[in-house]
C-alpha cells in the first residue's frame, strides 16, 4: 500500500512545530513584541490561497463568487503583510546599543 501524501504533509507540520518550539525559546524576551508582529506578518502567507481563489475560472466570463471572495482576502492579507513587516522593521530599528563613552 502506498503512503498517503497527507502523511508527508503531516510530517512536515509536526517537524515544523518542533522547529518553532526551539527557535521561539531562543528569542530574547525583549524582542517578544517584534516576534508577535513578525509572526503575524508571515502567517499572512495565507494570501497564497487568496490568489489561487482570485485567479480561478474562465478569464473571459464574469467574476465568479470565489474570485470576489479572493480579492477581499487579498486585501486583508496584504494589509497584514505590509503592515506587519514594516512595523516590525520600525521597531527593530529602535533597538540600538548606545556607544559607550
Amino acid at each position: 500500500m502506498e503512503i498517503d501524501p497527507f502523511i508527508f504533509r503531516l510530517s512536515i507540520f509536526i517537524l515544523s512545530i518542533f522547529i518553532g518550539y526551539y527557535v521561539v525559546w531562543s528569542v530574547t524576551p525583549s524582542l517578544h513584541t517584534p516576534l508577535m508582529s513578525v509572526t503575524n506578518a508571515i502567517s499572512s502567507v495565507i494570501i497564497v490561497g487568496a490568489i489561487i481563489a482570485s485567479l480561478a475560472g474562465e478569464s473571459n466570463s464574469n467574476f465568479e463568487i470565489s474570485n470576489i471572495i479572493g480579492f477581499f482576502a487579498i486585501l486583508l492579507a496584504a494589509i497584514n503583510i505590509f503592515g506587519g513587516f514594516l512595523v516590525t522593521q520600525r521597531m527593530l530599528q529602535m533597538y540600538k546599543k548606545k556607544k559607550k563613552k
Binding site: I14, S16, I19, G20, Y21, V23, V24, I42, S43
Partner: peptide
C-alpha cells in the same frame, strides 16, 4: 503555509 502555521502556532 503548513510550515508557517506550525511556527506561528507554537
Amino acid at each position: 503555509l503548513i510550515i508557517t502555521g506550525a511556527l506561528v502556532g507554537s
